[in-house]
Design a protein around this nucleic acid. Structure first.
Length: 559
DNA sequence: CGGACAAGCTGA
DNA sequence: CAGCTTGTCCGG
């Protein structure tokens, strides 16, 4: 018998045949992780096929060693699909589907999740208004769960009695969710720690992005919590998305998939049938949004509206958010009025700590006016550090001020105030609206819903923006309608499938791709656009990789 | 990727 | 021409 092995060697997308030594025969199957002698060195790899017909006439070497269990055959197959879908290497996906340490044996499943599961936490059928008729069958359901509502009943509902895969948007969220699910009596494997347990079967498998590749022997359900979260997308190429991998797994296993989100992505709405809660229930799950219209405010008040200061002086625990790091993003000399710019390249400099740092070339210099030598610089655009000092003074007590990372760091608050929300609403990124919505949902989770008197405050000059309108009405559908039409008009995802190609070999590569639209280059990046993923991915796959650095981002978060 | 080997460059 | 760098090829 012969093992066809894909080596775990970057830039080597070929399989090689090896003899399976007799004593190893019962340990080697599709997915098994092995070590092989290749071209004078010993490397790891995956068995991707077991055959008796070698693909070469040359004498075969034997496998050097069996390392242990690897991805199940269906995940080996899925890795080929993912390599096509995100124009990447199979090994990148097989690595994600492999245990972090060698697994020599699998624990036997001590009863299935089914036997141990209880349905006590499940929501009753009447709680949600099903727009579609599907229930428990196969297919994709998108459930819009408001931010302050508990997702666990919806997760249990999505899992039913099956062994399922549950994805959460961060490692911490996955660990918390695993604990909650264990409390309901289910047997739960938390990835990546419990890889072997998951592979043994009979449990619910929970994890973050990489867990989309977790072993689930009898996959009966897939649930993705906070499906809109950009953390599900791998930033490095191949830029695969865990939600999309999970959906494809569900489709192949003929298992139902449930996507949960307070603000479903347009991609999710396209993939499945939307289910919403009763209007009153969804409304309860969003906090009150207070819009501070700054269009007529005195510009000298800067970021500090009367209403903000009033809120900070109240007894409420307020978290202020400003996505500008450091002390100042723009400064001018207090003596001569000259803008603080880089002596090297002329771009504006920011003040992160003591020194001035160029935002383009990262050159550093002391905080002194280059024109007149004055050390007095005034802040035209403050960053969080400076705002913190100002607000402490205005509030007469310490105030929590941070970038959006503060929303992940803080446990709870009575109110979240976005000091300059226009920066989010009007960001020059095609997903800015959805990202701003996700930010408000995140903040909403911190402060709770109307029942807890949670409050969001945004300072803006676009008070009628559809994102704000959607949150005011606790109806994310209002944004989806507008956003969907805009994407269609601009032919951006999910209306079209696009890929961004960059790197020294980009030009050679994009001109070899046929049958798709080519735009650019902008800043050395090209955009390839096609009506759908099938067209785009087939076109990309038809072109051999030229030598040199090449980065292909399919479904870029920033186009 | 990284080892093997060939071709090119340098200095005595 | 030894000793080194750089480039190209290829793996079972």
């Amino acid at each position: 018998m012969i093992a066809r092995v894909l080596p775990d060697v970057a830039a080597l997308e070929r399989v090689f045949d090896y003899l399976i030594p007799e004593p190893l025969r019962d340990q080697v199957r599709v997915g098994t992780i092995v070590r092989i002698d290749l071209h004078g060195r010993r490397v790891g790899g995956w068995v991707v096929e077991v055959t008796d017909a070698p693909a070469t006439d040359r004498p075969l070497k034997p496998l050097a060693k069996v390392t242990g269990w690897g991805p199940a055959p269906e995940l080996v197959e899925l890795s080929s699909w993912a390599a096509w879908r995100w124009a990447g290497r199979r090994s990148a996906f097989l690595r994600a589907a492999s245990p972090q340490v060698a697994v020599r044996s699998l624990p036997s499943a001590t009863g299935s999740a089914r036997a141990l599961s209880t349905r006590s936490g499940s929501i009753s059928a009447g709680d949600s208004r099903r727009i579609s008729t599907q229930n428990g069958g196969t297919g994709v359901t998108v459930v819009r769960v408001p931010p302050a509502a508990d997702v666990v009943p919806h997760v249990l509902d999505g899992l039913g009695d099956a062994d399922g895969l549950v994805l959460a948007s961060s490692v911490g969220a996955a660990a918390r969710l695993a604990r909650r699910l264990r409390d309901t009596g289910r047997r739960v494997a938390l990835m990546p720690r419990d890889w072997a347990m998951a592979a043994g079967g009979g449990c619910t498998v929970v994890g973050a992005r990489a867990a989309a590749w977790a072993p689930v022997p009898a996959l009966g359900a897939v649930v993705v919590v906070d499906e809109h979260d950009e953390a599900y997308q791998e930033e490095r190429a191949p830029t695969w998305n865990a939600r999309d991998v999970a959906l494809e797994r569900a489709r192949r296993a003929d298992a139902p998939a449930v996507l949960l989100s307070p603000c479903p992505s347009l991609e999710a709405l396209e993939a499945g049938e939307l289910v919403t809660l009763r209007r009153a229930d969804e409304r309860e799950g969003w906090p009150v949004l207070e819009i501070v219209d700054r269009r007529r405010d005195d510009p000298t008040r800067g970021l500090y509206s009367e209403r903000l200061v009033q809120l900070l002086r109240s007894e409420r625990r307020v978290v202020c958010v400003l996505n500008r790091k450091g002390r100042a993003r723009l400064l001018a000399c207090a003596a001569c009025g000259e803008l603080a710019r880089c002596e090297h390249c002329g771009a504006v400099v920011a003040q992160l700590e003591a020194t001035l740092v160029c935002r383009r070339c990262e050159q550093e210099r002391p905080a002194v006016c280059a024109a007149c030598g004055s050390t007095r610089l005034k802040v035209l655009r403050p960053g969080v550090t400076r705002v913190q000092e100002d607000l402490d003074r205005l509030a007469g007590r310490p105030v929590v001020v941070g970038t959006e990372a503060a929303l992940h760091r803080e446990e709870a608050a009575d109110a979240v105030a976005f000091l300059d929300f226009d920066q989010e609403l009007l960001a020059p990124r095609y997903r800015a609206g959805e990202e701003a919505m996700a930010l408000l949902a995140r903040a909403a989770r911190l402060v709770g819903g109307r029942d807890r008197d949670g409050r969001l405050l945004v300072q803006t000059r676009v008070p009628r923006h559809e994102v704000l309108d959607a949150v005011v009405h606790a109806d994310p559908g209002r944004l989806a309608v507008v956003e969907s039409a805009r994407r269609a008009a601009l032919r951006l995802p999910p209306e079209a499938a696009v890929a961004i190609v960059s790197g020294e070999a980009a030009e050679r590569f994009v001109f070899a791709v046929e049958g798709v639209e080519l735009l650019g280059p902008t800043d050395g990046r090209w955009m390839l656009r096609a009506p759908d993923h099938a067209t785009l991915c087939h076109a990309l796959a038809a072109v051999p990789r030229p030598p040199g650095r090449l980065r292909v981002e399919v479904d870029p978060l920033r186009a």
